Computed example of a mutant assay.
Amino acid sequence: MFLPRKPRGVRFSRTASLAAGVATAAAQIAGTAALLYSGTLAAAPARTLWRALPVAVVLQAIAAETAPENARRTQSWMARVYVGVLTAALTAAVYLAYVLMGAPPVSHVAETAALSAHTALLVVYPLLATYGVDARAWAAAGAGPVPASAAGAVAGAWLGAVPIPLDWDRPWQQWPVPVVAGAVVGAAVGRVAALVRM
């Protein structure tokens, strides 16, 4: 989003893509761990997630820009804004998916909305930034780092919900702390695993 546009035909090398992918994944995990260990995420999840969103936007923009699938694609500034607006609009669909899968529909609206924004940023934004809205590009997506990161985020969020109903009475078990941590770790693991496999 805020990165300079690549000239046409310029490719990031495999090593540069791997280094950028590992660096952004490590930054996301480190940021989430810092929020968990400081207690701010468990004390005020909605406020903390909304405050962490700009940093997550920058990290996702870097990850999407340096993805190997995005190597030959150049986007104008307006196209990047369009992807951001479309991601923000699809946050409502992610919110609805969370409610349909069991999120508290009335009592934790702010927390679920913040979680939905982070999940849309982890899942929707990289896919739209890389493949756009072209159906042929989505059909040929394959198993690169961007789809693997999105799948990892979804699987991580789902697995992150497992400890919530357990009666350990830990502050990190409250909604949506383990789900957002699982989504971030899942996205990072998916991205790095796919980059290493390339």
Rank of each mutant, 00 (worst) to 15 (best):
A43G: 15
A43T: 10
A43K: 12
A43V: 03
A44P: 11
A46K: 08
R47W: 00
T48P: 03
L49V: 06
L49E: 11
W50T: 08
W50P: 00
R51P: 02
A52D: 09
L53D: 07
P54K: 09
V55C: 14
V57G: 00
V57D: 07
V57L: 14
V57C: 06
V57T: 00
V58K: 07
V58T: 11
L59V: 05
L59R: 07
Q60W: 03
A61S: 15
I62Y: 00
A63F: 08
A64V: 02
E65N: 12
E65G: 07
T66S: 11
T66W: 15
A67H: 12
A67T: 09
A67F: 04
P68S: 08
N70R: 12
N70W: 01
N70Q: 06
A71G: 09
A71R: 14
R72E: 14
R72T: 10
R72V: 07
R73K: 13
T74S: 12
S76Y: 09
S76G: 15
W77V: 02
M78S: 12
M78Y: 11
A79T: 12
A79F: 11
A79K: 07
R80D: 15
R80N: 14
V81W: 13
V81R: 11
Y82V: 13
V83R: 13
V83G: 08
V83H: 15
G84T: 00
G84L: 02
V85A: 11
V85Y: 08
V85Q: 04
L86W: 07
T87M: 06
T87R: 07
T87N: 05
T87Y: 05
T87I: 08
A89M: 12
A89E: 04
A89L: 15
L90P: 11
L90A: 13
L90H: 10
A92K: 04
A93D: 06
A93S: 14
V94K: 09
Y95L: 12
Y95K: 02
Y95Q: 02
L96W: 09
L96Y: 13
A97S: 04
Y98C: 10
V99A: 10
V99E: 09
V99H: 03
L100H: 06
L100G: 04
L100N: 01
M101T: 15
M101A: 15
M101E: 03
M101R: 11
M101D: 08
M101P: 00
G102T: 04
G102M: 04
G102L: 05
A103Y: 05
A103D: 00
A103S: 06
P104H: 01
P105W: 06
V106C: 03
S107Y: 01
S107Q: 11
S107V: 03
V109L: 01
V109S: 04
A110E: 03
E111L: 00
T112A: 05
T112F: 13
A113N: 02
A113V: 13
A113I: 09
A113Y: 12
A114I: 06
A114F: 11
L115C: 04
S116A: 15
S116R: 01
S116M: 06
S116W: 08
S116V: 04
S116G: 02
A117V: 09
H118S: 01
H118Q: 15
H118W: 15
T119C: 13
T119P: 03
T119S: 13
A120S: 14
A120I: 09
A120G: 03
